[in-house]
């Protein structure tokens, strides 16, 4: 049975639960294990890049919305120094978001070479 990020079973996401004010935002958010499952499905359908995306996404499920928006902003052109990007990468890695950390480090290198840093 698929579970929401909160642990609630998907079949328990019901109008009755909503009426009892038992549903919060985490009850309608995807669980990282579900994303891993979808990654395997995508791989089986010939799209390893989509699978990699789902795995990076699984790492981001625990980040608050505001932090996700902030990292996106930091990656836009001219917003960050290489050090800024590496700091974010380290912070992500410490929390187990290793694939996203790799992405940030790669960005720091390429941005430096292509003049996309602050």
């Amino acid at each position: 049975m698929t579970r929401a990020r909160s642990g609630r079973e998907r079949d328990d996401i019901t109008l009755d639960a909503l009426r009892e004010r038992a549903l919060g935002n985490d009850d309608v958010r995807i669980h990282p294990e579900t994303l891993e499952h979808q990654a395997q499905v995508a791989e089986g359908a010939g799209n390893p890049q989509l699978a990699a995306n789902f795995r990076r996404a699984a790492e981001l499920t625990d980040l608050p919305d505001s932090e996700v928006l902030a990292i996106y902003e930091a990656l836009r052109p001219g917003r960050s120094s290489a050090a800024d990007l590496l700091t974010i990468a380290d912070s992500l890695e410490q929390r187990g978001a290793t694939m996203n950390a790799v992405l940030l480090r790669e960005a720091a290198t390429v941005y430096e070479r292509r003049g996309l840093l602050q």
């Binding site: 981001l60 996106y72 960005a107």
Partner: peptide, 15 residues
């Protein structure tokens, strides 16, 4: 944007 900001955005939606 850059390819990296777009890649991150793509994962953000999936997350």
């Amino acid at each position: 944007d850059t390819p990296w900001s777009k890649a991150f955005l793509t994962s953000a939606y999936a997350s």
